[in-house]
């Protein structure tokens, strides 16, 4: 069923950045340590024009990771067949090094809500998501990576921990995992657990990629810290420390800096990529 033999080079165990069109020239001229780029799949599902021309050009110079934000893997309803067809088309012509999506939902009753919405970790959710991932991998014809969310709240109906839930999904579907270390830090702060414990319980053998990003700080109704996964600033030091801890378990992995709002000039993002490359260089191979 699922073709496990890679037909293209995988993502390198090197620094990558989330691609923003304003950095197009900079990336050609001065990529620094950046060896690969991640794009949001939905931004490249138009019929033509500059976005696709830029992507074709970049894909000749960089390994590309396609990161979906709109498939709504966690939907209670069926997956959007039109969207799945668009994804298959993009994956077909681009033939990227990697494809990933989120443990979340965003579409309900054909309304797309443009956010990654949370799920209870139950057997019912597990079955549904495994079915959806089977459908995606069979349609696209290759393995996908599933990313852990940033959590702001808990479901009282949940019966499994997130690492256990992800491990079981990977076991049932053969999908890989995208480990977002900032999301772990955000969720740990918001839901009062120790992020290192999460990493230690996480099924690292399935990790195909690691994400890092910045978050905002707020407080909840009781004055407790409430971190928000905004991707709008630099990665904070405790997240870099958590990355070091993570890399000792995973070994070197493709490491992405996400910066999606208040996007900085290239030198600032490049400096984050430099720091990611340094973290990778410290990992014993």
């Amino acid at each position: 069923m699922l073709d496990a033999t890679p037909k293209r080079a995988p993502l390198p165990n090197a620094a990558g950045v989330g691609y923003k069109p304003q950095h197009f020239e900079d990336l050609i001229r001065d990529p620094g340590p950046v060896e690969w780029l991640e794009i949001h799949a939905e931004n490249y599902m138009g019929d033509g024009g500059r976005p696709l021309a830029q992507l074709r050009h970049l894909s000749e110079k960089f390994a590309i990771s396609v990161h979906g934000v709109g498939l709504s893997i966690g939907s209670e309803g069926p997956l959007d067949a039109d969207h799945l067809a668009r994804l298959k088309h993009l994956m077909g012509w681009l033939n990227p090094a990697s494809f990933s999506e989120h443990l979340a939902w965003s579409t309900h009753d054909s309304a797309f809500l443009n956010d990654l919405l949370p799920l209870p970790y139950t057997q019912a959710t597990l079955t549904r998501i495994a079915d959806h991932i089977d459908q995606v991998q069979n349609t696209v014809g290759r393995q996908m990576l599933l990313e852990n969310p940033s959590s702001y709240l808990a479901f009282s109906e949940s019966t499994m921990s997130e690492p256990d839930f992800l491990a079981e999904i990977a076991r049932r579907t053969g999908c890989g995992l995208l480990l977002d270390v900032n999301n772990v830090f955000v969720s740990a702060t918001n839901l009062n657990f120790t992020p290192q414990d999460y990493i230690d319980a996480y099924p690292v053998e399935h990790v195909g990629e690691i994400h890092l990003g910045g978050h905002d700080e707020d407080t909840d109704d009781h004055g407790a810290p409430l971190l928000i996964d905004s991707h709008g600033r630099a990665v904070v030091d405790p997240v870099w420390a958590l990355l070091d801890h993570t890399l000792t378990r995973t070994g070197p992995k493709p490491l992405l800096i996400e910066w999606d709002t208040d996007v900085p000039d290239w030198p600032v993002l490049r400096a984050e990529a430099d720091r990611a490359a340094q973290a990778l260089a410290r990992v014993p191979v």
Binding site: L113, N114, D115, L117, P118, Y152, L153, A154, F155, S156, E157, N190, L191, N192, F193, D218, T219, D220, D221, H222, A224, L226, I228
Partner: peptide, 21 residues
């Protein structure tokens, strides 16, 4: 049934999603 870590109502935590959307 959406709560914080101490099983208290989600309150402002739910507003994060409202605001994001």
């Amino acid at each position: 049934d959406l709560t914080d870590a101490d099983s208290r109502p989600a309150g402002r935590r739910f507003d994060v999603y409202r605001n994001n959307v």
